[in-house]
Design a binder for these strands. Structure first.
Lengths: 349, 349
DNA sequence: TCGTAGTTTGTAAACGTTTACTGTTCTTAA
DNA sequence: TTAAGAACAGTAAACGTTTACAAACTACGA
């Protein structure tokens, strides 16, 4: 009789297995598994012996073995542009919490602001057993779309909402939100409105906001005034953009900044230039980060229901995995938060 | 001969396995594995056939099977108080990026601001094959410490640095940083300094800062003036604390706020009360979030090298896992960023 | 032509689980 | 006392990999 070949692997991790528990409790591994997973199916006395043995050695069933057998990992991964950004991290945080509450776990990976090459970055997530993928923003990588379709990997686009998208989207509509904001300014009497945007390259949020602004201007028969500004992390140089606008379009009475940080830096520069906000120039930001209320003057912005979006995205994905309910799109409302940085336009000549 | 019992499992995920590739290429699964993992060990012709077959069906080796066999998951998990907080998310982001660059993947879980009951929350991370655990702040859960020691699970405390800690710590020293800051104010001539802190319950950062402040006051033979303020997410109500201090200790010439958001809210209230910053009252924050420079007056704070800390923590853990190098502690320097919110004290009567 | 060494491929075991099936023991009614 | 059925426990297969070992083939020198 050939003695069994031994292929012992040096264990990195000294963790008791179900075999250790079985031996300690004097039962088979099947009984251990049942005692822990469906306690009713094993006699009280044995069950207690098993539980005692398991507790005494801090036994935790290894999810890797479990995942292999069950063909379920309970892992849902998220890709987002940048984690160190209050806009996104609020949503990501809500996702992670919702996952945890429902027995799932999530990988988080940053994608940068370019969604065209997602597949390669998502690969490792998929390899590691990701059952569902939540991606912030519009997904521009055809390979990823094809892969997910071919292999039935549920894919959800979160944060931004799109009227027509290749995959279900859960989020808010940047186009609509910007329209709301600009129309509010119109209602107040502003007719000369300029926009300062961050780079719109690969950034669906800026793209939608710009498109909304252009559309409104077109409807009014005006030439849109848009300046771009470099944004680095949480800093933006809105100052230079402000100077360009003031020089080339001094008739401007309201300035729509596509991110709060842009508005903040514009405010600093305005103060330096002696431009009174809001008396001479009304100013708005976007995404109502908490600091917006603390600036002087406090900043008018669009509030985004980040937490709701995150929870909804995670819940939708979980429901899909567990009940097969189809992944649907969902649009969340934004709200214009009117603060002191906006007033009626100054009297123009 | 008994026909093999079939225990087919309904596959959730339609992903090709190594068997599919083997069949398509007309080789054994061992050859597929070798062709993909150590290409030199298989004949060119076969290798190409295998690679072609694998590519044609988007084959990715399943990390679950791989992890089970290799006894390595390459997963390093992080627990941090709150993800939607620029302080922490900057560090977490650096960790995730470093992990990814080195072939690892990371779970992220929030712990809230209480580190006494970590074990239960960490359980799922451990079950899922976490090879190393990075936890923000001081670890107060003895069960977790015991478990990690008993089962050789590498544990690292990041963000805060502690002179003497049960586990290796990588971060900055809140005690020292606060001393630096207060001593700088002293050097400028301030002798009546008050502190506004967030809750110190289960929060080692606030605790260290308060301790430093008490120590300095003790050395000067002064009674420390400390007010606490409620902090909710990124908002703080420093206003009430400011009023209490101005009422009970009108001689105060400098105010040390233990978080930037506290300082921001204090600034707002000071303006309302007509207290000039910095002419009447100097003001400091902590952790140099980007907005600090944009406020008016710009805020003096302590800059924390978040990204360096995150990268160092991730790298240390990876090195430990791969080379067995012992996990060591490391202290990063902070820097006082002097801005306009601080000036010499007003002339006192 | 043969033996030998080197190269390449296949077979099967192992990683830690869950669970279908089978076998054993216990209970209960005739 | 015995048969039948219920309740419980154990055996073994399976999930997708990697890899030790064995087997087969190749090249080459004598």
């Amino acid at each position: 009789m050939a003695k069994p070949k031994s292929q012992a692997i040096q264990a990195r991790r000294i963790r008791p297995t179900i075999h250790d528990v079985a031996k300690a409790a004097g039962v088979s591994i099947a009984t251990v598994s049942r005692a822990l997973n469906s306690p009713d199916s094993v006699r009280k006395e044995l069950r207690e012996r098993v539980v005692a043995a398991a507790d005494s050695m801090d036994y935790m069933a290894d999810s890797v073995g479990k995942a292999l057998r069950r063909q379920r990992t309970q892992i849902i991964s998220t890709m987002l542009p940048r984690l160190a950004d209050p806009l996104f991290s609020a949503v990501a945080s809500a996702i992670q919490e919702t996952l945890e509450e429902n027995g799932y776990l999530g990988f988080v990976q940053t994608s940068g602001f370019d969604n065209t090459n997602l597949f390669d970055r998502a690969k490792r997530l998929i390899e590691h057993g990701t059952e569902g993928l939540i991606i912030f923003g519009r997904i521009d990588d055809q390979r990823l779309l094809d892969y997910c379709r071919a292999h039935q990997l549920p894919l959800l686009s979160a944060y931004s909402y799109f009227e027509k998208a290749e995959v279900p989207t859960i989020g808010f509509d940047n186009y609509l939100a910007t329209r709301q904001l600009v129309e509010m300014l119109h209602t107040l009497g502003h007719s000369r409105i300029a926009m300062i945007s961050g780079s719109d390259k690969g950034n669906d949020r800026q793209q939608s906001r710009i498109r909304a602004f252009r559309d409104i201007n077109a409807e009014l028969g005006q030439e849109p005034v848009i300046e771009f500004t470099h944004m680095d992390f949480d800093m933006a140089d809105g100052g230079a953009a402000l100077r360009r606008i003031m020089e080339n379009h001094p008739e401007t009475t309201a300035l729509v900044c596509n991110r709060c940080v842009i508005a903040f830096s514009v405010m600093v520069e305005a103060r330096r230039l002696g431009i009174a906000v809001p008396e001479h120039l009304s100013l708005t930001g976007f995404d109502d980060i908490d600091y917006a209320a603390l600036f002087d003057p406090s900043l008018t912005t669009v509030a985004v229901p980040s937490e709701k979006i995150g929870r909804a995205a995670a819940k939708a994905m979980i429901a899909h995995l567990e009940t097969g309910a189809p992944l649907g799109s969902r649009r969340f409302e934004t709200e214009v938060i009117l603060r002191r940085s906006v007033a009626r336009p100054r009297a123009t000549a």
